[in-house]
Design a protein around this nucleic acid. Structure first.
Lengths: 370, 370
DNA sequence: CTGTTAGCGCTTTCAG
DNA sequence: CTGAAAGCGCTAACAG
């Protein structure tokens, strides 16, 4: 028993399908009260549900918004996804989700799939990269995106423009001031941290990571500190954990050397000043912290640490993590809205969404008080 | 410049649209090598992307899987969503996401929207409820679901069947043994916990919560303990926080009374034995823990606490949370697969997926050792 | 204001 | 093995 169709409804109501369409699904022209009522009754007596595919085909638009994330289980993306959802709801659209693990090749496939479904717009979250191994993938992704835009699609990108994408019409970027914020974070930290800084970054070539690293170094330089050493690992918790392990070993070594055989536990109170770790995102920071802890080191006693993003789920972590708060939901919302805006013809200056701002948030993990 | 169509490709290749269709999109019949090659070339020289809407209309199926969650930013749902995503990928389908905050009315809308899009199957995650205020909504949801199934749709539900849904064909439930697991948790806890138990539950009528409460009480009874008092609040972090605040006050009072004016800080070592809190999910447990901490109480020193779910993002929380590990991703995967199975006609015993099992995981938060 | 007539792009009998 | 023709369900010009 297939779902009933508009034609059936029309027949039951004794009108033409066109009229039924006009009353059931919005149209500029309003049929007469009497007839409208009859149609409506027929419709719900049959349990009529319009076939969105057919509507889409006829109107060539789909009421769909495509969302591309690296990993929906990562709270960073989940928060953005929530924002996208909200914006989609405002536009009375549904969101189609694609998880790509950040591989440009998969992202390209996702874009193609969205294009095939005639998604009205596409939102891409997740760091762009310029790694050599992604070069080809990036080019293909850019080409796919261009084609999508040329065919009338709109795309909103979170963070950085996709490498190589010509800024064709319908292509919008929600810029996140990663570099500036990282610089500010560094500036604030230098006020209290006396020891060396170490950065735990993601793989080289990941824009988000690179920007934060660069910004942090800049902030350090401005404060007259020498540049931090940069440890590279995966852009997730286990990457942070690994790097944390390496740092823990180093801290212990330094302590052993510094205390020449004796054995106080408190690195922070020794000649060797405790290091301050900046992990380029919260999940990595949490991973690093876990590693230090597992090696018997304490934060902020033996080392201080800061992250980036201010992931909500991680706010109850102790010691509370110093970080940079990013309005993740808002970012998702804006990316979605900016993509839709062009859709509606509201061509206000190409990207009139208010700029994203973040907020340095110092908490216990970088406290240096006795 | 609209996307190019099959007809265009066919014309360019000098064949009929039918043939082009046969070579480009899978068909039982295989056109000749020579002609196939020509079509393929024409296709990608034009950058042809099949119009999924049109295909869907013609085949009346869409390659879409609808997923309904309360809140995609909640790590519990995010984990399930990841599993759904994976299963969808196996089936070469995309997932359509709907966030409903658990309101049956919204869920009904989501189901209707999915039905309109001719989703091949629908997965519903998130606790069902039998609260009086949801009664009407549940009935409508059930009706909508039934209609969807009757029209050939398949649905996979996580946890409990939707209230009032007739177990029509195509309706599958992935059962999570919440009650049993909660009972086991209680059993294990009674071995080490001497004080009273208190349960922080969600609103009455939420099945998941109710099951866990019931199971826990049963476990307690079996161990000869008297039933735990049940505090009700919202089924999320802030609900846990609120309840935690109330408990903190109570613990402090008890301590003051117990120590009649003197003032040791250690409730655990007093005559009043420390209470053991069971929060029906991890996020609530974390909230409660945060509340206790903010009131100057320490875990497990002043009270012990356990949660449920073993949310991955929360595993770095300290003290490590005792909980029941649930294979969330797997649950999502199974719900998706079981819904699809019927689709493929593989009618193996109505629900031949392996049953979900959980694992009691005792960690620091319930340690009672000195 | 309503009904009729064409498609939207693709699949799928059914002939050739 | 290929092509022609008839829709899938709905919308949007046109007529009436």
């Amino acid at each position: 028993m297939a779902a009933s169709t508009l034609t059936e409804v029309a027949r039951l109501a004794g009108v033409s399908p066109a009229t039924a369409s006009r009353v059931l699904n919005g149209s500029a022209r309003k049929p007469g009260q009497d007839i409208a009522e009859r149609v409506r009754q027929a419709a719900d007596s049959l349990g009529y549900i319009p076939n969105a595919q057919a509507q889409g085909l006829a109107k060539s638009s789909s009421g769909l918004i495509g969302l591309i994330v690296h990993d929906i289980a990562d709270p960073y993306f989940a928060a953005i996804a929530l924002g996208v959802q909200e914006a989609a709801r405002e536009q009375r659209k549904m969101v189609l989700l694609a998880t790509t693990a950040g591989a440009p090749a998969d992202e390209k496939e996702a874009v193609a799939a969205f294009a095939a479904r005639r998604a009205d717009s596409i939102v891409i979250a997740g760091s762009r990269s310029s790694r050599p191994e992604d070069k080809e993938g990036n080019a293909e992704l850019a080409a796919e995106l261009d084609r999508y835009c040329r065919n009338g699609g709109h795309v909103g990108v979170v963070g950085h423009p996709v490498v190589g994408a010509t800024a064709a019409g319908g292509y919008h970027v929600v810029t996140v001031p990663n570099e500036e914020l990282a610089a500010s974070l560094a500036a604030e930290l230098t006020a209290s941290q006396e020891g060396d800084f170490v950065i735990i970054g993601g793989p080289e070539g990941l824009f988000t990571s690179d920007d934060r690293v660069r910004g942090f170094q800049r902030g350090l330089a401005k404060a007259g500190r020498h540049p931090a050493e940069v440890l590279r690992s995966a852009f997730n918790r286990s990457g942070g954990y690994e790097a944390g392990l390496a740092l823990a070993a180093r801290i212990k070594d330094a302590r052993r050397d510094g205390s020449s055989g004796a054995g106080s536990e408190r690195a922070g109170s020794k000649g060797t000043k405790r290091i301050c770790i900046f992990a380029v995102n919260d999940v990595m920071a949490i991973g690093a912290a876990a590693a230090l802890r597992s090696e018997g080191l304490r934060i902020p006693r033996d080392a201080t640490i800061a992250g980036f993003d201010d992931i909500e789920t991680l706010r109850d972590f102790r010691p509370a993590l110093s970080t940079v708060r990013l309005p993740l939901e808002e970012i998702g919302r804006q990316a979605t809205r900016s993509a839709a805006r062009a859709d509606a013809g509201t061509d206000d200056a190409e990207g009139a969404t208010s700029p994203i701002s973040g907020q340095i948030t110092l908490r216990r993990s970088t406290e240096t008080a006795a």
